[in-house]
């Protein structure tokens, strides 16, 4: 299963994950996004981002803590409807 970027990334997006991802499947628009997002259909599960993230925000989808479970859907959703995902992040962080 793909990796997921969870709550600690919100408003603390370091972006180092984007530089270490070997398949460029992590996206972040600093003008619009409050966190980075992993494309679950591009992630090859190498774990490079997990090691690199200084926030400890990236975890395998199947190992998400219950309070972070929704971030799997949010990450997937961004690649279909970014505004939906941004609204979801706002709702979780409000």
């Amino acid at each position: 299963m793909a990796y997921v970027i969870a709550a600690p990334c919100i408003d603390h997006t370091d972006q180092v994950c984007m530089t270490v991802c070997p398949v460029d499947c992590i996206t972040f628009d600093p003008a619009a996004d409050r966190k980075a997002y992993i494309d679950p259909e591009g992630c090859i599960e190498c774990g490079a981002c997990v090691t690199a993230c200084p926030q400890g925000a990236i975890v395998p989808a199947l190992q998400l803590k219950p309070e972070w479970a929704f971030f799997e859907e949010i990450d997937r959703g961004w690649f279909i409807d970014p505004d939906w995902a941004r609204d979801a992040v706002d709702a979780l962080a409000a």
Binding site: D11, E67, A88, V89, A91
Partner: peptide
């Protein structure tokens, strides 16, 4: 910061904006 979210806080089944999940 969102990691202030209390662990016991219920998750929204549908995020704000009431649009259905696109996934």
């Amino acid at each position: 910061p969102a990691h202030d979210i209390p662990p016991t806080r219920p998750l929204p089944s549908v995020p704000r904006g009431s649009r259905r999940s696109p996934t």
